[in-house]
Design a protein around this nucleic acid. Structure first.
Lengths: 341, 341
DNA sequence: CAAGCCTATGTAAGCGCTTACATCACAAAT
DNA sequence: ATTTGTGATGTAAGCGCTTACATAGGCTTG
C-alpha cells in the first residue's frame, strides 16, 4: 500500500481506521466495510473477527470519508429563527424525530444568533443533502432561491416561492372561525393585534379576522401592527389602558402577545373576558394555566416539522417538487378568555 | 487527469466541483481552493476569475471532502432528551450560539425520539469532532465512557464521571437558600416533591432542602418520589387533596411539577400560599404568569449551553480535560407562591 | 473427472478537497 | 548579462471510505 497510514498519534487515541481494523482482523478493508455496512453477505467467522477488531481498536468510522464515497451527507439542515417559546422547539422535535426515522442527522442553524446569515446558510449547504427553512427566518428570498438552485429546499410556513416546495399550517379558515366565535359572543369592537406584514402566517390570520366580519356584514378594524413578543403586548396593553382604543375584544397574533396583554390588563384591574375578551394563537403551555384559560388555536406543529423532514427526504430521493403548498389543519381550542363560561 | 470527473448529471444541477470551477476559471484546483479558503495570497485578477466561475457554476463545496482532507468535521454534537419546556431549548440556543461563533456546525440528537439510542450516538460520533451530552439524557454511563474514549465529551448537568469533563448549574446551595426562605415564612411541614434518584440535579436540590432543615435544627421529611411532568404533579396534588400528606409547603423539583400541583390545588379550592406554599425550579415562562407568581430558581441555562460548546471546542483544540466540574451560579426568584406578599 | 457456478474475499479506482513541495516568471541586485 | 529572491501558481499525494470487478476455492452436475 503506497499510502502511509498512521504512524501519527494525537491527544485522543485517534486513528483507528478501516485499514487498522482490516489489518488486525486479517482481512481486506473491503471486507471490513462489508461487515459494517451489513449489506453483502460475509462469512460468520469473518464477521466476528472484524467485529472483534473493531471493538478492540474502538474504531469509529469517519463519516466524512463515507459521505465522500457514497456522495451523500445523510443529513438534513434546518434553519429556524430561534427556540424561545414552544413553537419552534416543537417543530424541531417533529423534524428531528422524522429525520431519525429516516436515518438522517440534523444540522441546526438558528438565525437569531448569526451575524452573517448568508454565510451560515452557505456553509450549511456544504454539509447536508437538503435544507428546510422556516419562513420567517429572516432569510431573504434570494438566499432561498440561491439555495434552491443547488439543493432540495422546503420552506416551512413561509411565503410561497415558485418552484420551492412549501408546507404550512392552515391559518385563514381557522382565524375566520376563531374571530367568528368571538364576534358571536356579542362583541362589536374587536381588534386584531399583530402585524400582517410580518409574514404570511399573520397576514392570513388577519385575513380570517376580516372574513369573519364580512360573513356578518360588518367591516373589520385596521390591524394594530405590533411585534410578537411579550414586551410588545405589554406596551400595547398600556396604550389600551390609556384609552387609546375603544374595544371589547382582542384577537392577538399569537399567545405570547395575548398572554402579556391579558395579564397586563388584569393587573390594572380590567376583567377578562368581562370588560374585554382576549384570544391568541398557538396554544402554548401557559395558555392552559392562566385564568381565565386562553382561547386559542392549536397548530399541528410537530406534524409540520415531521412533514418537512419527510419531504426533504423524498426530494433527495428524487421525487419531484410538489407545486402546491401542503397545508395541515389546525384546531380551535376554546377556553374562557373569549367569553365562554 | 486520470479521474473522470463528472460527465454525469442528476436531478439537481449537481456536480459543480472544484475541478469544474478550476477549468472554467482557467486555473488549477489548488488556486481555487486557495481563493475559497482565503488563507494564502492570490493575485487579485485570478481571485476574480475564480469567484466569477464559482458564481456562474453555483459551486457549493462538498463539506465531506473538505472534512476528509483537513481531518476535522468542524461540527459539534449535542445530545438532549427532548425540547418540550424552555429548559432544553434555552440550553440548545446557548450551545448553538457559541458554536456559531466558533464556526462549528451543530448536529442535534434527541434521545426521546430514538429507539436505538446507542446506535444514534455511535452514528453521531461518526460526524462530529466532539459531543456534549445532557446528563439525564438516558444515556448509560457506559455509552458516555465509550464515547469519551474516542472523542472529547462534555457532560452537562450530569453525574460526574471521572476523566469526563462536566459543566453544571449550582443546585445544592440555591436549594438550601430556597428551602430556607420557605421555612422562614413559618412553615413547619414542608415536603420535597421529586425523585432525588432521577439524577444529580434533583438529588442536590433535595440535599439543599435537607440542609436548610438542619440549619434550623430540624429534620427534613423524606422526599416524595414522583416524576417531573405535569401529569405527575397533578396526580400528586390529588393525593394531597385526599389528605395523604399533612403539609403547609411544597418544594417541587421543577416548575412544571410546581405549576401543575399549584393549579390543581387551586382548582380544588385551596389557597396558595395561604393554605400551602409552593415553590419550583427553573423559572419557566409560565411561572411569571400564574397567580400567585411562582417562587423559583433561575438557572443560567443559556450560559450553560454556551459553556459546553466552548469547552468542546477547547478540548478539540487539544486543551486538557478539567478535573472538576464547572458550576454556574443560579438565582433565587422570589414571587408570591412562597408566602411573600 | 472436467466444466461450470456460487460464495466469500481481495484489488484498486475513485469520491472532492487541502496542502507540501516544485516550478516559473519576473524584478532587483550584482 | 547573470544571479538571486520572491510571489503566484501548478503538481500530486493523500485524507478514509465504498464498490465494481476480478479471483479463488469448493460444490454440483453430467
Amino acid at each position: 500500500m503506497a499510502k502511509q497510514h498512521h504512524a501519527s498519534q494525537e491527544a485522543k487515541p485517534a486513528g483507528a481506521t478501516i485499514y487498522s481494523v482490516a489489518e488486525r482482523a486479517g482481512v481486506s478493508i473491503a471486507t471490513v466495510s462489508r461487515v459494517l455496512q451489513g449489506a453483502t453477505v460475509v462469512a460468520e467467522t469473518t464477521r466476528q473477527k472484524v467485529l472483534t477488531a473493531v471493538e478492540e481498536l474502538g474504531y469509529v468510522p469517519l463519516g466524512a470519508a463515507r459521505s465522500l464515497a457514497v456522495r451523500h451527507h445523510e443529513a438534513h439542515g434546518l434553519v429556524l429563527p430561534e427556540l424561545s417559546g414552544p413553537y419552534y422547539a416543537e417543530l424541531l422535535m417533529g423534524f428531528e424525530a422524522r429525520a431519525a426515522e429516516l436515518a438522517q442527522s440534523v444540522v441546526l442553524v438558528l438565525t437569531d444568533s448569526r451575524t452573517d446569515l448568508a454565510a451560515a446558510v452557505r456553509q450549511l449547504a456544504t454539509r447536508v443533502d437538503a435544507i428546510a427553512v422556516f419562513g420567517a427566518a429572516a432569510i431573504s428570498r434570494d438566499v432561498v432561491r440561491l439555495l434552491h438552485a443547488r439543493k432540495p429546499v422546503v420552506v416551512i410556513a413561509g411565503e410561497p416561492l415558485d418552484g420551492v416546495e412549501a408546507v404550512a399550517a392552515e391559518n385563514l379558515e381557522s382565524a375566520r372561525e376563531l374571530a367568528g366565535h368571538v364576534l358571536d359572543h356579542g362583541r362589536h369592537r374587536a381588534l386584531f393585534v399583530g402585524d400582517p406584514d410580518s409574514g404570511p402566517d399573520i397576514r392570513d390570520r388577519y385575513a380570517g379576522f376580516v372574513a369573519a366580519h364580512e360573513d356578518r356584514g360588518r367591516t373589520a378594524a385596521e390591524p394594530v401592527g405590533v411585534g410578537l413578543r411579550e414586551a410588545d403586548g405589554a406596551a400595547f396593553a398600556r396604550d389600551l389602558l390609556r384609552g387609546e382604543h375603544d374595544v371589547d375584544a382582542l384577537m392577538c397574533a399569537n399567545d405570547e402577545l395575548a398572554l402579556s396583554v391579558m395579564t397586563t390588563l388584569q393587573d390594572a384591574g380590567k376583567d377578562v373576558p368581562g370588560d374585554i375578551a382576549v384570544v391568541g394563537w398557538d396554544d402554548v403551555m401557559t395558555s392552559r394555566y392562566v385564568r381565565p384559560g386562553l382561547t386559542t388555536v392549536r397548530q399541528p406543529v410537530h406534524a409540520l416539522g415531521s412533514l418537512a423532514a419527510s419531504r426533504l427526504h423524498d426530494l433527495v430521493s428524487g421525487e419531484p417538487v410538489r407545486k402546491n403548498a401542503q397545508t395541515l389543519p389546525t384546531q380551535l381550542v376554546v377556553r374562557s378568555s373569549c367569553g365562554c363560561p
